[in-house]
Amino acid sequence: MDRVLLVDDEKEFTDVLSERMSSRGVEVDVAATGMEAIERIQKKSYDAIILDLVMPGMDGIETCRRLLEQNPDLQVILLSGHATVEKGVEATRLGALDFLEKPADLQKLMERIESAKARKMLLVQKRSEEKIRDILKSKGW
């Protein structure tokens, strides 16, 4: 089962989107603010973080920056009502995986979540291999 954290202050939007994603076999958690998202990733691992760009208080770009600072392996997909090229470039520079415009097509979003999951698995595998290599090197076997 895919695990997704949906970060958006628009409750009606997160309610319906999480219901639709759950019916497609995705486990969805919701955070209404950037701070809440940061707290959630400390407690649980997610295959993808779907993050709204414009939120009260800490905005999507700042939240993305802080999330990736805490865990560079996180797969962040930014969602915005106005996906400007400028914001897209900024998000990509920060390390976001993708940038989608609202209203988003659920099929497309599900495909992006699958890519995020695959990329995360590759990163985890790479980290494990590096760890094993380090252990082998330090033990001199």
């Binding site: 628009e10 939007f13 009502g81 609202k102 209203p103 988003a104």
Partner: peptide, 8 residues
């Protein structure tokens, strides 16, 4: 934002 909710 309102259209996104309508879309969902």
């Amino acid at each position: 934002n309102a259209l996104s909710v309508l879309n969902e």
